[in-house]
Write a protein that binds this DNA or RNA. Sequence first.
DNA 1: TCAACGAATTAGAATAGTTCTAATGTGTAG
DNA 2: CTACACATTAGAACTATTCTAATTCGTTGA
Lengths: 141, 141
Amino acid sequence: MSKDRPYSALVHRLKTAGLRPTRQRLALAKLLFESPGGDDRHITAEQLHAEALGESVRVSLATVYNSLHQFTEAGLLREVVVEPGRSYFDTNVSDHHHFYFEDSGELQDIPGEHVQMESLPAAPAGTRVARVDVIIRLSGD
Amino acid sequence: MSKDRPYSALVHRLKTAGLRPTRQRLALAKLLFESPGGDDRHITAEQLHAEALGESVRVSLATVYNSLHQFTEAGLLREVVVEPGRSYFDTNVSDHHHFYFEDSGELQDIPGEHVQMESLPAAPAGTRVARVDVIIRLSGD
DNA sequence: TCAACGAATTAGAATAGTTCTAATGTGTAG
DNA sequence: CTACACATTAGAACTATTCTAATTCGTTGA
Ligand SMILES: [Mn+2]
Ligand SMILES: [Mn+2]
Ligand SMILES: [Zn+2]
Ligand SMILES: [Zn+2]
């Protein structure tokens, strides 16, 4: 279909999401989605910024935040809040839940089938369920 | 049993928790646990501080934070994080989950029986489950 | 190809929630 | 009552995040 460079799939992904494929967004998307384990990363804005700088991708922290939020709105990422002042962006947008290791601050996926709710209560009138977050908090032994 | 003033039950509650019943802790505990609906309040530190000042209880914000954390450690409160930079303290420490109204920022209890997990995955070796948080995020219509 | 324009990026300031510091005050055991 | 550990406090500090307004870039269509 396309004879483009390695970025071609990402370019398409961003365009489809209504986002211009800028140098910064492409580089961040590459780090997010095409690293080893890219379909299950849990990363903070500061971590991604550091990672970019480490790869000599020049991008500001403000742009990292902007991009992460835009990717989230576009459904490419999912935001998971675990502590006040600590939120992760998750490259796995399928239906799943999380272990949170309180000691190390790490998040780990739990496949969706392993936690099932029976009888989710109905959303109150005038609202719809935007998301259901299940976080199993773990502490050391 | 006791012929003490209205604070007597609270004094006992704090002492049992290993906390000295100081003027500030008593006043905050009274606001938290003896308001109408005191077994189901979801309040932030700043809200509680404002409430205290409104009742002419002189207490610093630092003490409000200290007390909320101490109460939480003692099992009198439970902390619920809903957004980066927004955490609530919940006077309902029984097993239950929450609706979060994204528009208004309010939290509402869902009785424990109304959400049941089947087959919670086992905690990874070397860890124990400290808590399971279920937050159903609602957005307007 | 390129001008024009709206969109994106940026540095740095600003904000908000929370925690820290170190000086002062208070509850309680003896 | 005294002494001392514990608690409170004002304000500074800190951290994650958002904002601002100046600059740069991507796209489109002539
Ligand atoms: Mn956000
Ligand atoms: Mn806390
Ligand atoms: Zn995940
Ligand atoms: Zn609750």
